[in-house]
Nucleic acid binder design. Sequence first.
DNA 1: CTGAAAGCGCTTACAG
DNA 2: CTGAAAGCGCTTACAG
Lengths: 337, 337
Amino acid sequence: MKRPTISEIAARAGVSIGAVSYALNGRPGVSAETRRRILRIADEIGWRPSVAARSLSGSRAHSVGLVIARPADTLGAEPFFMRFIAGLEGQLSRQHIGLLLQVVDDHPAAIEAMRRCWAERRVDGMILTDLWTEDTRIPVVEQLGIPAVLVGGPRAESRLPSVWTDDTEAVTAAVDYLVALGHRRIARVAGLPALEHTQVRISAFRAAVHAHDLPEPQVVETDYTWEAGVRATRTLLSRRDRPTAVMYDNDVMAAAALNVAQEMSLAVPDDLSVVAGDDSQLCVLVRPALTALARDIQAYGVHTAQVMMDVVDGRSPSSQPDQPTSLVVRASTAGPG
Amino acid sequence: MKRPTISEIAARAGVSIGAVSYALNGRPGVSAETRRRILRIADEIGWRPSVAARSLSGSRAHSVGLVIARPADTLGAEPFFMRFIAGLEGQLSRQHIGLLLQVVDDHPAAIEAMRRCWAERRVDGMILTDLWTEDTRIPVVEQLGIPAVLVGGPRAESRLPSVWTDDTEAVTAAVDYLVALGHRRIARVAGLPALEHTQVRISAFRAAVHAHDLPEPQVVETDYTWEAGVRATRTLLSRRDRPTAVMYDNDVMAAAALNVAQEMSLAVPDDLSVVAGDDSQLCVLVRPALTALARDIQAYGVHTAQVMMDVVDGRSPSSQPDQPTSLVVRASTAGPG
DNA sequence: CTGAAAGCGCTTACAG
DNA sequence: CTGAAAGCGCTTACAG
């Protein structure tokens, strides 16, 4: 199947290829009549400009990159990425920007992937997710001059624009809600300590607890897995002054908590209130259904795409918060027995 | 940040750009000494060939496309895609092939996306997933001459190579297992009727049941959602001759069945055995843990990437089965009370 | 308003 | 073994 080129249109329309280019790009220099004719022919033969040719002359790749740095086996359990990608890609494709996706194991591999991708001119910019408190990718991106958007942040050490969720507000609201129910011993099962948002949420959690004049709370750091959730919950619930409410940094660990509570003959929510850090199908599918912090992840992807396009187009967008997170109250929370 | 080009290498090495190209591509025409020098310089300045330039002269895009046609909100719940993509992309990147990902709502949109992508020469081939019994994408891909791999299949009406899972074998093994436990009334809660594999699995299920001289089984078609699982299970369990075992086409519906059984005061597995059609974290996280059909989805992605590369390189691979599915027995199945 | 031409960064026959 | 040149399909100043 021969894919048509601009010369074929030029030949059919009886004009130069320059004229065709002007017509197709909506630039002045062709009469309205000629332009119409050219557009009609292009449409008829199903012509689309070769991105390679456009990239070469226009020095724009018309694609952006997303390098996900996670062990592949943990990716499936995490509904975040597919939703985020759905929003991101949907918005990018509206501007005819492609999304080049890469999946690697860790940050060194991510750096290598970005470096290569950029050197090959495959992308006009990169999107960085899962930011670490100390993130080796950021200085590399800055040094290479790669236009980029940080998903999470903003960060003191970098001027890269970011799109972030206000975790402080979300965690504070959740603590306030639990305190209003009457809880005084609230613990937190946090996510990966290396992740920036884990630390932000822990700080917010501690601050919120202190603001209510409650004693220093227990905080356990984990790797988000079911097993970690089980272990952390067992530890917390075995203490003499066991918490009456626990906030988990994701949905899987909160679900694990339900099983542990059952094992230990603690009723949820009467003996133990459980709050999940992500809302997902899992939250409504376990019993009792989990109270959770919910946000529109697809919209987060759309928002990120918009900022990415602003960056690529040189509009130097500022860092901006995404929509606020809301607390969805279900059956796993109540006042302490 | 100026990205270096081949001319810079040529200048530094004091040779023509042609010589540089030959050296870098491992073709004859340069002395070993010169080649080494050129390679060293390229490496030092971090040079990588511009894909745009390579595409334009070599008529290869060095990328393949995956257009996922699903409503975005159902994507997150489905661990399949991220795992499949992780395997697919990992293997492609080993050959320096990019993965262009698109997410659309339905087949007309998928066709439009593929048509555009191909006309713009963004990709050398496309990967088609979630095949329908009547799939409008396939004739379009064939007519446009797009190199493609079908994930699922193979199909009588198309000569496109496919990589598929032997669902017949998997479903038959599961039925045999349930029959061996002593079940005689086995029902099936199937997935989306439009999907080819739904029909393949239903046929295999009926055939396996008949092979054991059991009465015609109940089969309910669904859309894979929790709600559909609840409804189907209620319907099946309300019958006078209710089944003692039900096979579900995914994990979410099987989990839903556990809740319905509890509502109806039926014990799992004593009164009802439940088999999940996909293995996932969810299966081990509900109580009782679900017996499930399991396969290595990441490996499926790797396999698909290999076939895709064979297609792109003109090696005309044949359709080939992926690894067999295995039955992972957990706590949700037992002999009928 | 239109055409001819250079150039983007490569690859690849074709002379030497 | 090496160099000069054409060409891939576009965009974009630059003349007319």
